[in-house]
Design a protein around this nucleic acid. Structure first.
Lengths: 206, 206
DNA sequence: GTCTATAGATTGATAGAC
DNA sequence: GTCTATCAATCTATAGAC
């Protein structure tokens, strides 16, 4: 079995550590020692720590948001051709489900969740840039699906739905506060289902 | 006008900076220079940076969660004495409204929101310790309000609601991505109302 | 491409005068 | 309690041998 590419090893190690402790609580030394590579190789391959942060996020966010966009565009085409309003549930599913489908590691989910909340400037910028087109298309479809909901109200409901998604993705597998008698373990598919129920209800509320 | 206490000045400056950039992106030098006090005074008054972090969070979370607990206990007493199930909306209101009522600065809201997501270990620990009793009482009341919802499902719905709250509190006043024609500015009371509508609907879903 | 060695900056913390 | 001065550790980044 061939040893993995240095670039990949660094990305994997950085992803795990960024997801776990946040970008600025992770040093390049931790990353390279976990990856089993030399400290200087980070700067050789990525130019700087910022370059590495960008690369780590883009590796996941890029295909994720491409897949989301593809699904949303399919929903739009369907709505355009039939003249019927798109389904709220289908729209939201197009946002969440690609995360579960494209998973290959536990760290993947966490880096997505982390990218929504990490205080680091670079993280915020990359996240917003990457999700921009997805967000705009999602919002315009939701407006068509829910013409009776005022735009400004819809905007905040979408924020609620995204906040719920991010928080639950973050909590999955690492819930700290579980009431007695509750089984907090959950499959990803089940989480998707519960989230869709929850936020479809909240979005459609008249 | 008397100059404020050094301790207070440090707490205020630290709160603003922690809320803005996160704990580990903020140095003691930034804090003391913003507060107009000497660098060494942080260690004199708080022992260490960790001590300061704890103090900053506790100053807000302590009275906040006391107020929440008071309200939840009142709801419990009412339910106990009348034998009627408590109202989901009232329970959720007891969680969110105290944040708005106890506000004295913009930074206050952000430090609450930040405390839910900052990757720093100390932040997470203080937040969980402080909210523990509130969470348990809230959950037991929700179980009484929604006896037909399985515990495990309810648990995740509560996570959704809290995630929605945290994210929207964070977004308020600093929304980065606003679709054309949408007015994302919103009063705190209005946000509370929208959030209650959203998550009451989602929690009660059969 | 990979390594050692180190520069250069910044950090949290503290000793000691006032 | 407040200040200056500084230590010791840690960080990112880079120069240069291999």
């Amino acid at each position: 079995m061939k040893k993995k590419d240095t670039t990949q090893r660094i990305l994997d190690a950085a992803e795990a550590l960024f997801a776990e402790k946040g970008v600025s609580n992770t040093s390049l030394r931790e990353i390279t020692s976990r990856a089993g590579v030399n400290l200087a190789s980070v700067n050789y391959h990525f130019g700087s720590k910022l370059g590495l942060v960008e690369a780590v996020l883009k590796r996941r966010l890029d295909p994720l948001n491409k897949e989301r966009l593809k699904r949303l565009q399919a929903i739009k085409r369907e709505a355009d051709s039939t003249g019927k309003a798109p389904s709220v549930r289908a729209i939201m599913q197009a946002i969440f489900e690609p995360i579960l489908i494209m998973v290959d590691t536990q760290a993947f989910i966490r880096i997505i969740a982390r990218s929504m909340t990490d205080p680091d400037e670079t993280v915020k910028n990359v996240f917003l840039r990457e999700i921009g087109p997805v967000f705009r298309l999602m919002f315009s479809l939701l407006m068509r699906a829910l013409p009776h909901v005022p735009k400004d109200v819809l905007f905040w409901r979408v924020q609620f739905a995204l906040g719920a998604m991010g928080h639950s993705l973050w909590a999955i597998g690492r819930v700290k506060m579980v009431p007695e008698g509750v089984d907090a373990s959950i499959s990803r598919d089940r989480l998707l289902e519960l989230w869709l129920d929850f936020c479809t209800e909240g979005l459609e509320n008249p």
